[in-house]
């Protein structure tokens, strides 16, 4: 389970790498370099954050799912 926390770090590194590549691959012509860089990197970062928060919240939840209406065939 402890390795799960490192998933977040590894994905972070991957995202950072992609962002760095995107910085250099941004179209230089057409006068939209800044817009491309900002939009791409910011979007990817925010998507990463959102994912990471969702993932971390499920690592060790303090509440467990519970239901009392489950038909027996759904229990694996």
């Amino acid at each position: 389970m402890a390795s799960s926390f490192y998933t977040v770090v590894i994905v972070f590194l991957v995202v950072a790498l992609i962002n760095t590549i995107a910085w250099f691959l941004a179209p230089k012509k057409g006068g939209n370099t800044t817009v491309f860089r900002s939009t791409f990197i910011l979007a990817l970062s925010m998507m990463y954050l959102m994912w990471a928060i969702t993932y971390l919240a499920q690592l060790h939840p303090l509440v467990v799912p519970r239901r009392s209406d489950l038909r027996p065939e759904f229990v694996e």
């Binding site: 389970m1 690592l59 467990v64 519970r66 038909r71 229990v75």
Partner: peptide, 18 residues
């Protein structure tokens, strides 16, 4: 009929989303 069940965590974490 219906069962009362509670969840127990597996080894894996749901990888993407809730």
């Amino acid at each position: 009929g219906a069962l009362i069940v509670v969840g127990e965590q597996n080894e894996n974490i749901y990888p993407f989303g809730l």
